[in-house]
């Protein structure tokens, strides 16, 4: 097989990468669930899943198997077509977002660790992740039941209101880096992660991202003690698993994006290992991948820590925070960053 043929370069190689990435992401998502359950166990002075395999490591596979084998129930009142496709609407954007994440420095001209080096990477990411809400709204509506309807109504307003501060906080990152490309943004953080100069934007991003992904303390659309299960109350078996997968894929995606935008991606501040080990590109890539993974997992830990600590917000309070606190802060931050940038240009 000729790896240098135009067909392989434009179609074959990206396809191969997509297949690998899908597998890796699905694996990561499964083990995010495992990590969350274990960590929650430790936070709450209990053990967590530890029966299936050593330290419960086979648990995600057992869970997946169980969900596949479960009966797929479509309620009588549901709109069957929408009910069937809604979970797909949720899961596809969550996975598609990974296309522009640069996990490690490239090991060669054709051995990059990202699928698409799009020069509008961030815009694509914002666009594709906001599509995820359709899956939730459709699923809640199509279920033909009241609790899911409430869940999807909440979800619609919540995700729309938090999109705005999230975008503004990302905009300030773009201003700092001067590019929409994710790799450029990472390169711009070689000396100092954006976390330090953009601490405000980071705060806004974290809060909005938690709300965007419907996680505690903003897990209102699925608030189990109020809405039972929210939008996925009526779902079971594999369709439920799709929603589950989408939620955790979004969490992993947010961790990856936060790592890239604020924590410096695969860079280590004050340690330019890429230039030190320039002769050995694969080693550089591996180290980069490890650094990225460590940062992403650290962020994930923070995510789970939040969930273990805080009570849930109320619907109106949540919207109030989004519009009256986060939006002004992110706007102010954007103005500040733009002003400083302008002053530096002069």
């Amino acid at each position: 097989m000729n790896w240098n043929s135009p067909f392989m370069l434009t179609v074959g190689l990206p396809l191969l990468k997509i297949v690998i990435l899908l597998g890796v992401v699905a694996f990561c998502v499964a083990y995010t669930v495992w990590l969350e359950r274990r960590l929650l166990g430790f936070f709450q002075s209990r053990v967590g899943p530890n029966r299936v395999g050593p330290a419960g490591l086979i648990q995600p596979i057992a869970d997946g198997l169980k969900l596949i084998l479960k009966e797929d129930i479509i309620p009588t009142n549901a709109r069957p077509f929408l009910f069937r496709i809604a979970p797909i609407f949720a899961v596809v954007p969550a996975f598609a977002g990974f296309a522009i994440v640069a996990f490690a420095p490239p090991a060669g001209p054709r051995a990059s660790f990202l699928i698409s080096d799009a020069n509008i990477g961030i815009l694509y990411l914002l666009a594709i992740t906001s599509l995820g809400v359709f899956g939730i709204v459709l699923g809640g509506w199509a279920s033909g039941s009241k609790y899911p309807l409430f869940g999807s109504l909440r979800s619609a307003s919540q995700m729309l209101s938090y999109e705005v501060p999230l975008t503004f906080s990302v905009l300030s990152v773009i201003l700092m880096a001067g590019s929409f490309r994710l790799d450029d943004i990472i390169q711009a953080q070689g000396k100092l992660p954006f976390l330090v100069p953009l601490i405000l934007a980071f705060g806004v991003y974290v809060i909005s991202a938690v709300a965007e992904t419907n996680r505690a303390p903003f897990d209102l659309p699925e608030a189990e003690s109020e809405l039972v299960g929210g939008f996925h109350t009526e779902y079971s078996g594999m369709r439920f698993a799709f929603y589950f997968l989408a939620e955790y894929a979004n969490v992993v995606l947010v961790c990856c994006v936060a790592t890239s935008l604020f924590l410096g991606g695969y860079k280590i501040p004050f340690l330019p290992y890429e230039t030190l080990l320039a002769g050995n590109p694969w080693l550089v890539s591996l180290i980069g991948l490890a650094v990225f993974a460590v940062k992403a997992v650290a962020f994930l830990y923070f995510y789970i820590w939040i969930r273990a600590t805080f009570p849930r917000y109320r619907y109106d309070q949540l919207l109030k925070i989004g519009w009256k606190v986060l939006l002004p802060i992110s706007l102010l931050n954007l103005l500040l960053v733009a002003g400083i940038k302008l002053a530096m240009l002069r």
């Binding site: 709450q44 505690a216 273990a308 600590t309 009570p311 917000y313």
Partner: peptide
Amino acid sequence: HALDLGAMTVLFY
């Protein structure tokens, strides 16, 4: 009560 309001850890404590 805490679990109802979303604070799950208190229950286990």
